[in-house]
Computed example of a mutant assay.
Amino acid sequence: MRNGTKLAKHFSMSDHLLKFGVLYLLVLLIAVASMMSRQFLTAQNALNVLRQVSPVIILALGEGIVIITAGIDLSVGALVAMSGMIAAGAVSFWNLPTFAAVLLAVLFGIVFGLLNGIIIAKFNISAMIVTLATMNAARGAAYLYNDGAQIIGLPDSFTDIGRGYLGPIPIPAIIMIILVILMVLLMNQTVLGKYLYAIGGNEEVARLAGIGVLKTKITAYAICSMFAALAGVIYAARMNMGDPAMGEGLEMDAIASVILGGINLYGGQGSILGAVIGAMFITVLGNALNLNGVSSFWQLVVKAVALIVAALIYTKKKV
């Protein structure tokens, strides 16, 4: 009986660490970073981090629901570039209003995600293979869009999306907060959220239970790409340009955020808020390394190690 109690406590502690471990790591990272650089805890740097983390969190929200269904989307970084080019081209070449340009880019993202979802779900092809192919297609299209050139000189009404403030809060952060609230409600309070978890837990059982697996998976990929397109608009607005090279490596940041946040690679488990905390950890880590003059090449190595460690931890949990 005593051994059983100890075993129960052991598993309870393990589950607690797996659920909240990245939050503890984030707190520890903030403490260490503040000791290593005086600039880290300044108001200006806090606002910079908030602005930087917003599109990463938006990407992680979309990637999170796809991974919850036991899928993956490698195309989000390339879609950031393509949607940024579309929005920048719309306001620069076609003189469309900012709202119309953003809507055009987001609609493109939805169609792109629907295509991903249909190929994956209807034809039962590996999500990794499909999104790897569409990643290359989107990146190529981004370069073809303006013959490989950047689109510069965007109007203030557009750049305010990435650079502006509403009071003291950066506009990208406000967009991000709204989307986080909506996604938490969707995953926890709606039938669609329950279906997404059920499909990730056991797709065949979900199908036998009468869940529309095809429609639900397609919806997940459409939402993921829609968020990637919106993140692309924010990046283009912040950088004041459409750049076909934009978003390179962002798919890794999104996936790392999701896995660090405790969403299981095998699907069916995890929290959207965990993905948000994971994205904050990735961004704060990059910011701390930048402030301490660490090369961007070494930053890639550090992020890769963090991703592998997280994957090992959560894979062990699943086994």
Rank of each mutant, 00 (worst) to 15 (best):
G140K: 04
A231H: 00
V191W: 06
A137S: 12
A100W: 10
K122T: 07
D160A: 10
A222T: 09
G274V: 07
E63P: 00
L291E: 04
T131C: 06
Y24P: 15
L214V: 06
N240Q: 08
R38H: 12
I175K: 05
R2F: 14
H16E: 03
N264V: 11
L47D: 07
V32T: 12
S14M: 15
L26K: 08
I175Y: 06
P97F: 05
N290T: 12
N3G: 09
D243F: 06
G247V: 09
I110A: 10
I57D: 00
V111P: 08
A229Q: 01
M135G: 07
S157I: 00
G193R: 09
A105P: 15
G4L: 14
I177D: 00
M13V: 09
A231F: 01
A46S: 07
F11P: 05
L29D: 07
W298H: 08
R238H: 11
E248C: 00
A141S: 11
I255D: 02
G274F: 02
I178H: 00
A173R: 04
G193N: 07
L250R: 02
A237C: 04
N45W: 11
V191H: 14
A149W: 11
A209F: 08
E204R: 14
V180P: 03
T42K: 14
L291Q: 13
S54M: 05
A87K: 00
L79K: 02
A198E: 08
W94F: 15
P155R: 01
I177Q: 04
G162M: 03
V130R: 08
V56N: 04
E203M: 11
Y24M: 06
D15W: 05
L23E: 06
G242N: 03
D73A: 06
D156G: 11
I169M: 10
H10P: 06
V284Q: 01
A306N: 02
K217V: 12
L307T: 01
A133F: 08
E204C: 08
H10C: 06
T219D: 10
V294A: 07
L186K: 13
Q150G: 10
V53T: 10
H16L: 14
L79R: 00
